[in-house]
Amino acid sequence: MTQIYTSQTHERDLVQACKRRDRKGQEAVFKRLAGKMMAVCKRYLGAGPLAEDVFMEGFMKVFTKIDLFQEQGSFEGWVRRIMVNEALMALRKEGKMKFQETDFGYEIGQTEDAYVNLEVEELNKLIESLPLGYKTVFNLYAIEGYTHQEIAEMLGIQEGTSKSQLSRARGLLQQKLNELHV
């Protein structure tokens, strides 16, 4: 008897199906998380074939290493971490991971409600426009919620570098936001 998986199927059941190497279960997981994970890959790598490759590699790792998932935290969070790690590895392989120390000299000013209410597309454009080092640290800290210590370990940099990169990313974003709303 083959089990049918719908959008209502509980995450735990899908994980169990994946652990049994049930192809239907794997397909359900893929369809449920693919859109979000593709967004993660594009945020780090930009829209292009590299993001798609990393997305595929990430999902392969999810399905082949599913037995390592302890089912204590969120499954989506676990998959997201794998995607982020894969994206960082791809950046490292490409030799693109460089951290600019240039200070743009922008002060972080008062935030306006307009900034908070920015649409996702606009936000993506803003983040995409940042230099790679700033963008990576900003994504990891502000969007994924990693601490500076975790970011430093993930990127193999000093904690201070992570902080300075974030500060500069924020400054540059502020400037770009101001330009948008002038």
Partner: peptide, 30 residues
């Protein structure tokens, strides 16, 4: 921080379009 947390909520729910036939590729690889 409040602005970033608002962005985080939005960004984490963001869904990108998936190219056709990606699951078939994945299935073949599996």
């Amino acid at each position: 921080k409040s602005m970033e947390s608002a962005w985080r909520r939005k960004m984490q729910e963001e869904i990108s379009p998936i190219p056709e036939g990606l699951w078939e590729k994945m299935s073949a690889r599996l």
